[in-house]
């Protein structure tokens, strides 16, 4: 079963359109959603969560039409964790106990201790990192099968980010647990994701297994004249300087004998995003 199936989904705004998006996240995997600001990442997540209604297409979450999907099975962390600022972690646990039928208070308490969060400090006194950790502790404490994180690691220091990524990896150790996370921090996605999806101006540029990206794409460094030899569709993106050209290429489309070095997802994203501007 797929955790997420997005088929031909369209959403039109006055100045932006999500254009016939197709995306599949197999169960048990982590997918990273990359894109510039305004690429459509948050729109996609809002559509998944039925916060906005699409203009076309279908969305299936955990085998069910997304509007009928049981939200008990989905843990969500938004870019801002939106608890009223008078609440403490203790209050949040007590409220969520009555919101989720599958709430695990023991697990929540264990996570609060593990993440060194205070029980009685009001939310307004939390740092961004602490807020995010509380949001993640809630998302992980109700036996969710699918986690959806929208820019959850943005603005966090590297130590907290690492803690968050460890929690995600722990979560996916259980069979059929899946994660969709959008982030600007490509290195985070590169660390934990099995699949990478690139969105640009509402269009999906690619959605591929991370290992396949390493296999399919490579970096060539050559002179501007040598670059002319390459077919146009072989070059994903390039950076020219006085010393030559650095280009990300499709390995299968370059002539035999050309040497490539391994691609880095961040470079691939930056060059793909730059291309066609």
């Amino acid at each position: 079963m797929n955790a997420i199936e997005i088929v031909d989904v369209t959403k039109n705004y006055k100045k932006f359109s999500l254009d016939h998006l197709n995306l599949t996240l197999p169960a048990g995997c982590i997918m990273g959603l990359i894109g510039e600001n305004g690429a459509g990442k948050s729109t996609t997540i809002k559509l998944l969560l039925d916060m906005i209604q699409g203009d076309g297409g279908t969305i299936t979450l955990l085998g069910q039409e997304h509007t009928k999907c049981n939200k008990e099975d989905i843990g969500v962390v938004m870019d801002e964790v939106n608890f009223p600022d008078c609440l403490t972690a203790k209050n949040v646990g007590s409220i969520m106990k009555d919101v989720y039928r599958n709430w695990q208070q023991d697990k929540f308490e264990e996570l609060i201790e593990r993440l060194h969060l205070p029980w009685k400090q009001p939310f307004k006194e939390f740092s961004r990192g602490m807020k995010m950790k509380l949001g993640i502790a809630v998302a992980l404490s109700h036996q969710a099968k699918l986690l959806i994180l929208d820019e959850a690691t943005g603005g966090l220091d590297p130590v907290v980010r690492d803690q968050v990524l460890d929690l995600l990896l722990d979560f996916t150790r259980e069979e059929n647990h899946s994660v969709l996370m959008s982030s600007h921090i490509v290195s985070d996605l590169e660390k934990v994701c099995d699949y990478i999806a690139f969105l640009k101006k509402g269009r999906l540029l690619l959605c591929e297994e991370k290992d396949m990206l390493y296999e399919q794409y490579g970096v060539v460094r050559c002179t501007a004249e040598d670059m002319q030899v390459l077919a146009e569709d072989a070059v994903i993106g390039k950076r020219e300087s006085a010393y030559g050209v650095e280009a990300i290429v499709k390995k299968e489309r370059i002539p035999a004998g050309w040497e490539t070095s391994p691609v880095n997802i961040e470079e691939l994203f930056v060059l793909m995003a730059k291309e066609g501007r």
Binding site: L49, D50, M51, N70, K71, E72, I74, V76, M78, E80, V81, N82, F83, P84, D85, V99, Y100, R101, I148
Partner: peptide
Amino acid sequence: FKWDIYCQSLPI
């Protein structure tokens, strides 16, 4: 507090 937005992700 944008609780109204977060609330849409809860099973309510």
